[in-house]
Design a protein around this nucleic acid. Sequence first.
DNA 1: CTCTATGCGTACCGTACGGTACGGTTCTGA
DNA 2: TCAGAACCGTACCGTACGGTACGCATAGAG
Lengths: 215, 215
Amino acid sequence: MTEQREKGFTPRQRAVLECALELLVAGGERAVTTAGVARAASCSKESLYKWFGDRDGLLAAMIAYQASKVRTFANEGEAVDRSRFRARLVAFARDLLDVLAGDVSLALNRLAIGQASRDENRLGRLLVAQGRRRIDEGAIALLEAGKRHGHINYEDQEEAYRTFYGLIVRDLHVRMLLGEEEVRRPEGFAALAERAVDQFFALYRVREKERADPA
Amino acid sequence: MTEQREKGFTPRQRAVLECALELLVAGGERAVTTAGVARAASCSKESLYKWFGDRDGLLAAMIAYQASKVRTFANEGEAVDRSRFRARLVAFARDLLDVLAGDVSLALNRLAIGQASRDENRLGRLLVAQGRRRIDEGAIALLEAGKRHGHINYEDQEEAYRTFYGLIVRDLHVRMLLGEEEVRRPEGFAALAERAVDQFFALYRVREKERADPA
DNA sequence: CTCTATGCGTACCGTACGGTACGGTTCTGA
DNA sequence: TCAGAACCGTACCGTACGGTACGCATAGAG
């Protein structure tokens, strides 16, 4: 009992959750049956119910466990140099695309989206809170540093970040969620990241003089 | 039999599919049971199986039916005037957000995403083919007209459109799919559309002289 | 060695759902 | 008026799955 709340999950539980995630990736939500997880993980259904309460608890635990594995998006050190700051942005964009295109990420997002109409949206909120939040915070801190050093400029922090996100991801995430395999090409993500950062700089570069927008 | 393939669906079938869509919107995929649809639509299960083959056929028919209701994204007439072209872009952006935020659209996207690991992705491909394609085509034609009249400039048509899409939608679609109600505010969509179009013009405006990008 | 806790494996139960069959009713066309 | 098709309502079947109970093995504590 002590180590369950300290470190989140027992080693045995982590192994079981790992098996459950494999099943989810392989076959979607319908493949995650209590009997199936028990068989794959060589544990008893009784243990599953003891540890996670019920099937929904198991699904929630899978999300929490996966989130606990992802370490915070790297953001060590300040990027005073402009080219170095740009490299940071590109790295963030590439990491973001890699994460979103990952098997487990896609499977968990599909799971939460599929459950959106049930349980007052517990899984969706959990996924956003545990997964997206820390990505957002890392990126916003990065942008803030860039502004502080005069590399970019913006009024609304959140607004600038959302724009950056949109330039990077566009409709790729939804299309990947819908199963378009053609769009999951990690080898092309570097180019996408470069382009997105270029466009972001074009929109948020520092302007010596405010000048009227040609509209 | 004649009118089934001509107009897609019989009036009776359309009524049944309407009921099925209501169930889907209200309770998600799990709420669309053959017995439930039959009861809600006052038809027999036997008719359902006769018309749609099996449950998957019913789900596919729901997507096809909904797509058949949406008329092609308006694109009548050329927009020679610049301000008129801009208004067109804003209107497209607002329409896009409205569509994506619609109850039925969200429910169908959740359905297709939830089924992404099954049936070799039939529903997902159907949804993209029937729903997204005509939106994309309308927008691309619009951009092309804008380029022809010298309002914007780009090399890669598809690339420009995807950027426009990203500036409009950002991560709103996924967050709506995940059930974040706070983000479904049609009253704010007009402002989002305006901003996105401004940013799009900033990125793709015609430049009298090519000038080196400050990077 | 014994007692107890943990957990595995299996069997079991109730329900829900996909799919089928059948009787009865309405509508259509000759 | 009659034949046949379409269709509704209901009952039925088999299976799959969530959840529970029980028997047995193992391991650590006293």
